[in-house]
Design a protein around this nucleic acid. Structure first.
Lengths: 339, 339
DNA sequence: TTTTTTTACGCAAACGTTTGAAATAACCTT
DNA sequence: AAGGTTATTTCAAACGTTTGCGTAAAAAAA
């Protein structure tokens, strides 16, 4: 029992039977006599036999492993996604190989190469911000390894995908501000060239429109970080633009804004109500606590994995599916009077 | 090029040579003629040949994969660790299989079984809170698969390990409070049965001692969460215990305490200075920003992986190593006057 | 007893790759 | 021309497992 593990061959040798017999005995094949089965199972137990998953993979031409490409693990959202992936995979007895692209296109490419070389049965991808060329992803498709995109998709790329309805979530977030009586709602927006930035802004604008409120560009600010939010708030206050609500593209921005507003003596939510868009665990620990959109990273992970497993297990081809998850608005202190 | 990938056999068949020749040609073996090499490499290129990592693993009896068992991915600290692991592994062209124990002992056990079955070349473990029985970990040791513990270790278990010097970090955190002139420093402590809780408290007490300050049990409170911190602060204020400093066992606790203190009109850091122990990204976004111990999760991941790779690559056995990482105290607004 | 059926097992090939040893062929030596 | 190198290639086994097919022996049927 020194180096290496017990194999079927070891058991066969010891029992003076053939490996085939051992293999069949272990899976309770009817051709094997009860006596042999008992002997094999006992010895297997005693020697602590564990089937060699690598050999099985080679034989079966499938590895019971799924590969995940994630832009950056160190994000509440993405780590929640992994958690969801891991849980579903574990239930289905699949392993998970994680590869981090670190938002770099060539690392993403290398990751995919590794995953394919390791014969993963399917791949979950959230594309890096830097990925402009999609040939490596096309390669997955050609290799007939099932592929599911989550969160960051490629418009027009034919594959299963799971995304969040950013538009709808922003719409609801803004509508919530309107519902509590706010009339001049600012938006601290994300980058214009990113889909999420666009969608969130559009949802915000549509909610204003539907409520019959004016959609003013001067209420939209380029601010998607803690620091930019401070500056944007100062700008708002200096320029004398009156606002009574704020919908921020993410939580950090919302928090930065809240703090600056408070420093200037503005009461939240009485004078200005604030809603964020969750990308962290921050919302519960601010003062007041922050109303925010919950992105359900965990759910995204589970849904994406289910989609992938379905594809892996299905014999025939079927049309690509797109799952759109609804984000929840979690109402907290920054948009309701009293806690 | 339909199903499956190009193999060495495909190339051999096409070129009417043997698989052995192809194999050698691809690795530039001197026995192979230049002509053959050229032909093989060209065809391999053309057919986009990728060595089958599974077959290689089986042949080589090593998989170039390391397994990681992590209590919960959705924690800033642990996801940073993974990030560190991933980066070092990637550099060394190792794959990473992640398994989440979710703080459950039997899931941890199952994870280890999977990892061993998949012939990982080494395992990184942070034991779950629920693990009382260590037989599955002993099994790794017996199987001669290298094992490195990170962060959560098992006292007395002979294996490489990477830990944070909690005692030292707490000592320095407390000393910092003393250095800025605080005399009555409270400690919001973690569970007494956990090593980290004990070490952090001991560091706190030692710092007081060394400074000639009295070590009073009445200044130590059982509080290791946001909510418990609120209650503890209220208790302090009601009972009239005077404090001018607070060292909390983690950031959430520190933040909960800060908010409650502020609500009661107490100025931070002027009246009470606060230091946390980092477990998140929170410290930068509070108001004031929170002085806190940085646990260096990323570094822990890299160091643990380096230790593991060293063990994997080394032929002979050598004594177990324990790396103790020093955590940094990051001084922010909650313990300095100004910004 | 002979033939048929059943039971219980072994053989060999396969998955993709590597590698020591053997084989072939070509070229040198003397 | 016999023997010796050298260059190039193939063979076969191995890693651990599965599985279709074949078969010996035992049991049942004739």
């Amino acid at each position: 029992m020194k180096k290496g593990f017990t194999t079927i061959k070891d058991i066969a040798r010891e029992l003076k039977v053939s490996p085939s017999t051992v293999s069949r005995a272990l899976k309770n094949h009817p051709d094997i006599s009860e006596d042999t089965k008992r002997a094999v199972n006992e010895l297997a137990e005693k020697l602590n036999y564990q089937p060699n998953a690598v050999a099985l993979s080679l034989k079966r031409q499938r590895s019971n492993t799924i590969g995940v490409i994630i832009p950056e693990i160190v994000h509440y959202f993405f780590s929640s996604v992994i958690s969801g992936i891991e849980d579903v995979a574990y239930e289905a007895s699949f392993n998970v190989i994680i590869c981090q692209s670190n938002e770099m296109a060539d690392r993403e490419k290398a990751n995919i190469k590794t995953l394919l070389a390791n014969q993963v049965d399917g791949i979950l991808v959230s594309v890096s911000k830097a990925t402009k060329d999609f040939s490596h992803l096309e390669k997955i498709k050609n290799s007939e390894v099932p592929l599911v995109f989550y969160d960051r998709i490629i418009p027009g790329f034919k594959a299963d995908q799971v995304i969040i309805d950013d538009f709808d979530a922003s719409y609801r977030a803004t509508k919530h501000l309107i519902d509590i009586g706010k009339k001049r709602i600012a938006h601290f927006a994300g980058p214009k060239n990113l889909l999420i930035g666009q969608h969130r802004k559009q949802g915000y604008q549509k909610a204003l429109e539907d409520a019959g409120l004016p959609v003013e560009e001067e209420l939209v600010f380029d601010a998607d970080s803690f620091e930019k939010a401070r500056l944007a708030v100062l700008k708002v206050l200096e320029s004398g633009i009156a606002i009574d609500g704020l919908f921020a593209v993410n939580d950090l921005t919302a928090i930065g804004a809240m703090q600056t507003l408070q420093k200037k003596g503005i009461k939240i939510p009485q004078e200005v109500a604030v809603v964020g868009f969750s990308d962290g665990r921050f919302s519960g620990i601010t003062d007041p606590t922050l109303t925010s959109v919950d992105q359900h990273g965990y759910e995204m992970g589970t849904v994406a994995t289910q989609l992938l497993l379905k594809r892996i297990h299905s014999k025939e081809d079927y049309p690509c599916e797109t799952k759109v998850l609804n984000a929840n608005l979690i109402i907290r202190g920054s948009s309701v009077f009293s806690p």
